[in-house]
C-alpha cells in the first residue's frame, strides 16, 4: 500500500473517530451547555450569585454529599441496576463513624477509613442479596434502605452523635482548605470523580460494568464471573456512600440518624440528568457531576431569587423531565435506538 493511500485511510478513520466522538459526546455537551445557560441566567438576575463565595460555599459545597453518592451509584445504574439504600446508608455509616470515632478516640484518617469500609460493606451486602439470593436490585436495595434507616435509629438511640472538639480537625475534612479558596469537601468530590472516571473507563471493573449493563447473559456466556463483579460494583458504590457520610458529618459537626432519606433519589436524579441510561450500558461520571451541579445551581439560584423551597422541588421535577425528554428527542433524531 502506498503512503498516500495510507494517509488517506488514516484520515478517513480519523474523521470517523471525530464524528463518532461528536455523536457520543453531544449529550454531555448539551448538558454542560444547559448548566452554563442556567448559571448565566441567575448571574444576570442576581450578580451575587456568581461570587466565588456563593459558588464554592453555596453551590459546590452543597453538591458534595449528593455528588459523591451520585458518582458511586452511576456504576450501579450502568450495570442496569439501582441502589435505593444509599440515602439511609449514609445516615447509618455516619452514625457508626461517629460512635466509633468518639468511643475509640480515632483521628481523622482512621475515622475516614472506618466510614469508607462500612459504606463498602453495605454495598457488598446489597451485591450479595442481588447475586446470591437473586433478588431484583430494586427490592434488595429497598430492603437494605429500610434496614439501614432502622439501624441508624437503633445504634444512635435516636440521638445525634456530636463530634466534640476532642476529634481534632474533623470539621476540616470538608471545610478546611488544603488548596486555598477551595473547600476540602469540594476537593474530595472532584478527586473522587476523577478516580471514578478512571476506574469506569480504564479498568477491568469499569469495562465489566458496561458489559453487564449492555447484556448480562452474553457477558456471563463470555466467561465473565458476573456475580462476583456485581458484588464488587455494588461494593464500590458503597465506598462512595462511606465517603459521602464522612463529608456530611464533617460539614454538620454531627451525625444525625434521620438525615439521608431522600438523598438516594436526588443522587439518581443527578445521574439521569447527566445522561446515564436507566436501562444500563451507557453513562459517564462527568455527566453525573454535571447533573449534580445543575440541580445544585437551580436550588441555590432559586433560593437567591427568594423562591420558596416548595417551588424549588417543582422546578427540579420539571428539569428532570426536560433533561431526559431532550435526550430522547436528540437520540431519535440521530437515528439511535436505545
Amino acid at each position: 500500500m502506498s503512503e498516500a493511500v495510507k494517509a488517506v485511510e488514516s484520515e478517513v478513520e480519523g474523521g470517523n473517530r471525530l464524528s463518532a466522538f461528536a455523536k457520543r459526546e453531544i449529550g454531555r455537551v448539551l448538558a454542560l451547555g444547559s448548566l452554563v445557560v442556567i448559571f448565566i441566567f441567575f448571574t444576570i438576575m442576581r450578580p451575587v450569585f456568581a461570587s466565588w463565595e456563593n459558588v464554592s460555599g453555596g453551590i459546590l459545597m452543597s453538591t458534595t454529599v449528593i455528588g459523591l453518592l451520585a458518582i458511586g451509584t452511576t456504576f450501579v445504574i450502568i450495570t442496569g441496576g439501582i441502589d435505593l439504600s444509599i440515602g439511609t446508608a449514609t445516615a447509618l455509616v455516619a452514625i457508626i463513624v461517629g460512635k466509633t470515632v468518639m468511643a475509640l478516640d480515632l483521628g481523622v484518617v482512621s475515622g475516614m477509613i472506618v466510614g469508607v469500609v462500612v459504606g463498602g460493606l453495605v454495598g457488598v451486602i446489597n451485591g450479595l442479596l442481588i447475586t446470591v439470593l437473586k433478588l431484583p436490585p430494586f427490592i434488595a436495595t429497598l430492603a437494605t434502605m429500610k434496614a439501614a434507616q432502622g439501624l441508624a435509629l437503633i445504634v444512635s438511640d435516636m440521638k445525634p452523635v456530636l463530634f466534640t472538639t476532642d476529634v481534632k480537625g474533623w470539621d476540616s475534612i470538608a471545610q478546611g482548605n488544603l488548596i486555598p479558596k477551595i473547600p476540602n469537601g469540594v476537593l474530595i468530590l472532584f478527586v473522587g470523580a476523577i478516580i471514578a472516571a478512571i476506574i469506569l473507563n480504564k479498568t477491568v471493573i469499569g469495562r465489566y460494568t458496561f458489559a453487564i449493563g449492555s447484556n448480562e447473559a452474553a457477558t456471563k456466556l463470555s466467561g465473565v464471573k458476573v456475580n462476583n463483579w456485581l458484588v464488587a460494583i455494588y461494593g464500590l458504590g458503597g465506598l462512595y456512600v462511606g465517603m459521602a457520610a464522612v463529608v456530611l458529618t464533617s460539614r454538620l459537626g454531627s451525625a444525625r440518624p434521620d438525615l439521608g432519606l431522600g438523598y438516594e433519589l436526588e443522587a439518581i436524579a443527578a445521574v439521569i440528568i447527566g445522561g446515564t441510561s436507566l436501562l444500563g450500558g451507557k453513562g459517564t461520571i462527568s455527566g453525573t457531576i454535571i447533573g449534580a451541579l445543575i440541580m445544585a445551581v437551580l436550588v441555590n439560584g432559586l433560593r437567591i431569587l427568594e423562591l420558596q423551597q416548595e417551588w424549588q422541588y417543582v422546578i427540579t421535577g420539571i428539569v428532570i423531565v426536560i433533561a431526559v425528554w431532550g435526550d430522547n428527542v436528540r437520540r431519535r433524531r440521530a437515528g439511535e435506538t436505545s
Partner: peptide, 8 residues
C-alpha cells in the same frame, strides 16, 4: 440475546 453487547 446471548452473544453480543449490541450497544457497545
Amino acid at each position: 440475546k446471548y452473544g453480543l453487547l449490541l450497544i457497545q
